[in-house]
Simulated assay, not measured.
Amino acid sequence: MKQLSSLERAVEYIEEHLNENIGLSDVSRETGYSYYHMTRLFSTVLGESVGRYINRRRLYNASEKLIHSDRRITDIAFDSGFESAEAFSRAFKNVFGSSPADYRKAGLDLVVNAKREMAPEDVSHIANNISRSPEIVWLEEIKIAGIRGMTSISDNRLPGLWKQFRSLHTEFFGTERTGYSVCETQQAVYTEDGDVLFSVMLGCPADNVEELPPMLSGKTLSSGRYAVFTHRGTLANLFKTYKYIFGTWLSAAEEELDDREDFEVYEREVTAFDDPDNEVKIYIPIK
């Protein structure tokens, strides 16, 4: 019998309990992965939070009932886990672009994909711009100083945060060119519409993170084993590299994620977002 990846197990569990009151904690407990890593897996590979995925799958099932049954919309709403027909209608319109009543009247039967089909450019990126077999290393703890900001699945604010960091770089870090980007998923905030806000730390190595100027924050990255991947080329494709790591490599690797934060290391200055000579080291924590 084929062994399911952690993401496949998560999706299977969701499908089997779709009509129950489940959330990220339930999915994490079932798969054995932490709240942190399950958030990373879903947001990286499927491009959405666990909550939004569950909500969208329930809405798709509801759309089939609207088309293929004559049940009342209110009953379908309650069966789909919504507290009222109004809340169901708002969520349905947000996904399908029409109210449940109009959808039923028009006889539409739309499909909402859980994961988009892999495009040729994705295959090219995996083949040419990623070190597909990572280097396994042990790191002692690393202290960094820098700035914190927020980004989300639907609104990537990282370019603006990097611009802000670069404006402070010379004053506080001099000629230091090694930069760190840490996605602090353990501090993720889930919005009402199912999006996820992530805390991000951008910084440089520092000897002391206790006494810093007010505009800077300090952080210590935990020691341990890491699988190190190299991403080359435009930073717009970083999400594709993460999709490969969490969606392809992890499911086949004989390694287990550890409950520490992953991070990126920029060993040379990034002069342009789309510079083909960009190179980023991605450190994935493993046990």
Results as ranks from 00 to 15, higher is better:
Ser154Pro: 05
Glu135Tyr: 04
Trp162Asn: 03
Ser124Gln: 14
Glu135Ala: 13
Arg148Asn: 15
His125Asn: 08
Lys115Met: 00
Pro120Thr: 04
Ser154Cys: 08
Asp155Phe: 07
Arg148Ile: 09
Glu121Cys: 13
Met118Asp: 14
Val123Cys: 09
Ile130Glu: 02
Ala119Thr: 15
Arg132Ile: 09
Glu121Thr: 13
Arg148Thr: 09
Glu117Leu: 09
Ser124Cys: 03
Asp122Glu: 15
Asp122Gly: 08
Lys163Met: 03
Arg148Ala: 01
Ala145Cys: 01
Arg157Ala: 02
Met150Ser: 05
Ile144Lys: 01
Leu161His: 02
Pro134Ser: 07
Lys143Tyr: 05
Leu158Phe: 01
Ile144Leu: 13
Gly149Lys: 01
Arg132Phe: 01
Pro134Arg: 05
Ala127Pro: 01
Val112Leu: 09
Arg116Gln: 13
Ala119Glu: 15
Leu139Cys: 14
Lys163Phe: 02
Arg157Gln: 05
Pro134Asn: 07
Glu141Arg: 00
Val123Asp: 10
Ser154Lys: 13
Glu121Ser: 14
Pro159Asn: 04
Ile153Met: 06
Glu140Asp: 11
Lys115Leu: 02
Asn128Gln: 14
Val111Trp: 09
Leu161Thr: 03
Glu135Arg: 14
Ala127Met: 15
Glu135Lys: 11
His125Cys: 12
Pro134Gly: 02
Leu161Ile: 07
Ile142Ala: 04
Ile144Val: 12
Glu135Ser: 11
Ile144Glu: 05
Lys143Val: 03
Lys163Ile: 02
Met118Gly: 06
Lys115Pro: 02
Val137Gln: 05
Met150Cys: 01
Asp122Ser: 10
Ala127Asp: 14
Ser152Asp: 09
Ala114Trp: 14
Val123Ile: 12
Val137Pro: 12
Val111Cys: 03
Asn128Tyr: 06
Val112Met: 01
Ala119His: 05
Ala127Gly: 06
Arg116Glu: 10
Pro120Ser: 06
Val137Cys: 03
Val123Pro: 05
Trp162His: 07
Pro120His: 08
Glu117Val: 08
Ile126Arg: 00
Met118Thr: 14
Arg132Gln: 08
Ile142Tyr: 03
Asp155Cys: 08
Ala145Asn: 01
Gly149His: 02
Val123Gln: 13
Gln164His: 10
Ser124Asp: 15
Ser152Leu: 10
Glu141Asn: 08
Asn128Trp: 04
Ser154Thr: 12
Met118Glu: 13
Val137Arg: 05
Ile142Met: 04
Arg116Thr: 14
Ser154Gly: 04
Ile144Cys: 00
Ile147Ser: 08
Glu141Trp: 00
Glu141Asp: 09
Gly146Ala: 04
Val137Lys: 05
Pro120Tyr: 03
Ile147Ala: 08
Ile136Val: 13
Ser131Lys: 10
Ile147Tyr: 12
Arg148Val: 10
Leu158Gln: 05
Ala119Val: 11
Asp122Arg: 00
Glu140Gln: 03
Ile153Tyr: 03
Asn129Val: 00
Ile130Thr: 01
Ala119Ser: 15
Ile153Ala: 00
